[in-house]
Design a protein around this nucleic acid. Structure first.
Lengths: 172, 172
DNA sequence: AGCTTATTGAGAATTTTTCTCAATAAGCAT
DNA sequence: ATGCTTATTGAGAAAAATTCTCAATAAGCT
């Protein structure tokens, strides 16, 4: 199913990364896990193999592995919120990672049979919406990223008229 | 599509929540947005309606609205990592929010036709895996939550033998 | 073995989220 | 309307998660 550690390591060194002990440790942890792990789980386990490994190194290694396509990062940066839909059947949201817009995939026979498959497995989705992360059509046809989140602490004590939104940000 | 603000407010006060100006502001912002918003977007907009609204209040209101089912929280707490699958076609992960385990939904005609629907819309999923958050069968049949993440800062400088994982945690 | 330099560890710094507590105001009873 | 009770708020502190900095280390090449 998944590539063995050896293969991942080979692939990395081919691209020019050095095969260090901390990196090997993280890779080994991930391979042996056979399921997803949170950061603290990875850190603790990696330290059993490589006691002096630092927190930042784990973060960096995970970032590197993700960039190289060996890892799937299960959640992305910041939360977003939208009103719950009135219809309570499971539906699908297409979430654009660049412009952050969420659009809804209308219910079709396909989505419904997928819902049935979940019920068959006794898996109860929460939130009644499944997120599909990706790039929307508009953003696929564009180059640079346009959206940068504003930092909370830096928001002014009182409200000003600056348009603090997707379109035109004035940052500190 | 979505409930109007009035209806949400009525529902809240029925359950016993007070309808305060800050809460109304947040609700209005969400209703008017007609798309998902990040926290900073909500804060900025809410302050245009209610300049003295505090950061914590926005968090609290969002949490409350989510608990009451009026809001969908698009991403959950902490990231998890798992090795990327070798097969490159879009597939689905069933992510249990309680035990955090990720299992894979095998490719079926339904999943494939859903994939086709995405292509039709020119939506390019990233990561090659769609996450479906929910409760797995095992956790549905249990009561209290069993998994609590360990805090990074509190991890000991050297490795000890305490089993810092899903099954048995020893917390500070 | 020696050199070069990518990588590391430790801690500081940032960013995001939650908590604390006195002050405020929503909803009820008068 | 007025006053009472107490849920809720705002502000800042605190906690938690992530990223950055930089001198020290060690991979991979010669």
């Amino acid at each position: 199913m998944h590539k063995p550690a050896r293969e991942i390591e080979k692939s990395l060194s081919t691209v020019g990364y050095r095969l260090t002990r901390p990196r090997r440790a993280v890779i080994k942890v991930l391979v042996q896990a056979r399921r997803s792990l949170s950061l603290d789980e990875i850190l603790i386990r990696a330290r059993k193999l490589e006691p002096r490994i630092g927190l930042a190194t784990v973060y960096r290694t995970l970032e590197m592995l993700t960039a190289e396509g060996h890892l799937e990062e299960v959640r992305t940066r910041t939360k977003r919120y939208m009103l719950a839909c009135s219809n309570f059947s499971l539906h699908f949201h297409l979430v654009c990672e660049r412009c952050q817009t969420v659009t809804e995939l209308p219910s079709t026979p396909e989505t419904q049979s997928l819902t049935a498959a979940l019920q068959m497995r006794n898996f109860e989705p929460c939130g009644s919406a499944v997120e599909i992360l990706g790039l929307c059509e508009r953003c696929r046809n564009r180059g640079a990223s346009e959206t940068k989140p504003v930092h909370l602490r830096s928001s002014p004590p009182h409200v000003s008229e600056i348009p603090h939104n997707q379109s035109g940000l004035s940052k500190k």
